[in-house]
């Protein structure tokens, strides 16, 4: 057992971090907004932590957890503010158009971070201080965070604001006519997702020890979208499951050596085609809870 955690400590923490990123894309999707901006906010959060810990907070020995928590807070806040500023104009767009606008945002952030000196240009920032002595140590932080966010998402689904989100996803116009302010709730959902992605970025910067422009790219956006779509986009369990499975997959496929990325792509494609509802399909649960579905009249 110990050997297992030794070997797979990094992977386990990484799976949780990716599950959290999946949730950060799920939140706006709950309000019907297909955003691919998570990787951009993830990058922002990572840079906040990387810059603060290497240039502002000077420490020796193990990095104080308090500082790390402060970084995550600031990363979340900054991401939230950027989300509101970008979201108010961008969230007027629908569907694929919004997705494209968020891709543009991510790419602009990437090119800018490649060129600024504060973000370390193309090489990025290294030697980010470690608060824990082993990768598995991060589980103390990431595990509870994942549980908290899952609880948050679960409770949100049954609360007033969550209902407003879901109403917007189902039919924005009808929701509007029922007194739900579309812009406010869409920006709120977008900002909540952004804050989460920022927090995950801040933790990831420490966890990965280094941060650079390759962390927040289009590929990451799509990987995260795949977590949600393959896991299931209609309940919070979907992105968590999708994030964990898809992150573990290359590891599981390791015996395939160089072929594994090919198989990885193949599985992504097959899952999109043959698991349209995702792995976590809420209908399976819903069927049991309610009266049997009758035939349409």
């Amino acid at each position: 057992m110990e050997a297992f955690f030794q070997t797979y400590g990094f992977l386990l923490v990484y799976m949780c971090l990716q599950a959290l990123l999946g949730l950060s894309t799920y939140l706006p999707l709950m309000a019907g907004q297909l955003s691919l901006a998570s990787s951009g906010f993830y990058a922002i959060g990572g840079y906040v932590a990387a810059i603060l810990s290497t240039q502002v907070f000077h420490t020796s020995g193990a990095y104080p957890i308090g500082y790390l928590l402060l970084e995550t807070l600031l990363a979340g806040l900054l991401s939230g503010v950027v989300a509101v500023v970008v979201g108010i104009p961008a969230l007027r767009l629908r569907g694929i158009y919004l997705a494209l606008a968020t891709i543009a945002m991510v790419e602009i952030l990437r090119v800018v971070s490649l060129n600024l000196s504060i973000t370390g240009g193309a090489v990025g920032i290294f030697g980010i201080a470690q608060p824990f002595s082993s990768p598995l140590g991060y589980m103390w932080l990431v595990g509870p965070l994942l549980l908290l966010v899952m609880f948050f998402a679960y409770r949100l689904e049954g609360s007033r604001i969550g209902r407003a989100f879901i109403a917007l996803r189902e039919d924005e116009l009808a929701a509007d006519a029922m007194g739900i302010n579309p812009t406010y709730h869409k920006v709120l959902a977008f900002a909540l997702g952004a804050m989460l992605a920022g927090v995950v970025g801040a933790i990831s910067a420490h966890f990965l020890n280094t941060w650079n422009a390759r962390q927040g790219t289009f590929d990451v956006s799509i990987a995260v979208l795949a977590y949600v779509l393959i896991g299931g986009s209609r309940s919070f369990a979907g992105p968590v499951l999708g994030g964990m499975v898809l992150t573990a997959l290359p590891e599981v496929l390791r015996p395939l050596k160089d072929l594994r990325f090919i198989v990885d792509g193949l599985l992504l494609m097959l899952a999109a085609i043959y698991l349209p509802q995702g792995l976590a399909n809420p209908n399976w649960l819903a069927r049991r809870k309610t009266a049997p579905v009758r035939e349409k009249t």
Binding site: S159, I161, A167
Partner: peptide
Amino acid sequence: FGNLSALENIRIAHHIHTKTGVWAGV
């Protein structure tokens, strides 16, 4: 809201007469 239950459709429409925010609700 076709994918939601009849009851949920009506719950949603109480939005303007309620004020629970994100945190209070969660």
